[in-house]
Design a protein around this nucleic acid. Structure first.
Lengths: 174, 174
DNA sequence: GTCTATACGATGATAGAC
DNA sequence: GTCTATCATCGTATAGAC
């Protein structure tokens, strides 16, 4: 129950943008949910787009914080295990960051996320270390599979997907 | 260059909803692109939501027409091959039907597509025929992978994904 | 920092003529 | 069937007081 109104606005907008969408969410609704006046949103974030950008920066920090350890991992098995497990272990309070990322991919003209390249390279490295025939394509395919898995998790919840996680880990022997 | 204005409206709206999104597309823009008066949209489709529903029904027919042959296939290898190849072979003119489906999954409160169950069952059957250990999970995983692949195709185009297609077909030995 | 009041263009939708 | 004109409301944003 924070009383920092600027942050309350950000959290309310994150929730609404993630659940209903950016274009579908009027600033009046954000103000209502955050229990602040509508004008305050524009004082703090200039305009609606500025509010979105602030949320995206917070999401980016969150993202880096959780995924960057994978880049330090020196054991290829552990690297794959970490990567595959990742979408199943996003904390409940942070799911909306992820939901928003996936939503925006379709909603606004979202710049193709180039920040993922280091992770793709790391997975490629892991497959190469493990002696796979075509590490580049293995990595790309796993990447796309995890994208599909994440979509399903965001839609149906993690519980139902437990067996899929186990199955994937077994399939890659990690 | 059809002159059927009702259909011109539908095609313009399909294009715009698929590319920019439902909420981001004003009816004025649809009218402009279809080269009709804005009022005509409401004569033919009652309201914006009705227009969307009409498009969705057309998309559904398109979808059934292309995918239903898979349900008749009696050869399990061919079944998998058909299913894996499918997203790579959507005709250029029909890509927007697919883009819209994927976009709406995130944009509006879209009913979880139960119509896919027969196809999932068919894939499960194919894996069982081929002697896979866990046909249910194999089918679910392939389904999610194809979802990720489709997303990538809609984002980057099919050309760049040719190698991924070959790789997938080889991986499943079909 | 925060609120209330308000401006104002955009948007979905209707009415009425042809 | 189609267009033009028009309306009511919504949505973003600003102004000014406290």
């Amino acid at each position: 129950m924070s009383t920092d109104r600027k942050e309350r606005i950000l959290l309310a907008a994150l929730e609404l943008f993630a659940m209903e969408g950016y274009h579908a969410t009027p600033t009046s609704k954000i103000a209502k949910q955050a229990e602040v006046s509508e004008g305050l949103i524009f004082r703090h974030y200039q305009n609606k787009e500025g509010l979105l950008q602030a949320i995206l920066q917070a999401a980016e920090r969150n993202f880096q914080q959780h995924l960057s350890p994978i880049l330090e991992e020196s054991n290829p098995q552990k690297t794959l295990r970490f990567y595959i497990s990742f979408p199943f272990e996003v904390p409940e309070e942070e799911v909306n960051f992820w939901r928003l990322q996936f939503k925006l991919k379709w909603e606004v003209n979202y710049p193709k996320n180039q920040k993922l390249t280091p992770f793709l390279d790391k997975i490629t490295w892991a497959f190469r270390e493990l002696g796979y025939d075509n590490p580049e394509l293995e990595a790309e395919l796993l990447f796309l599979t995890i994208e599909g898995v994440s979509t399903a998790i965001l839609r149906d919840g993690m519980e139902r997907m437990e067996s899929t996680k186990k199955f994937l880990l077994k399939k890659y022997g990690v």
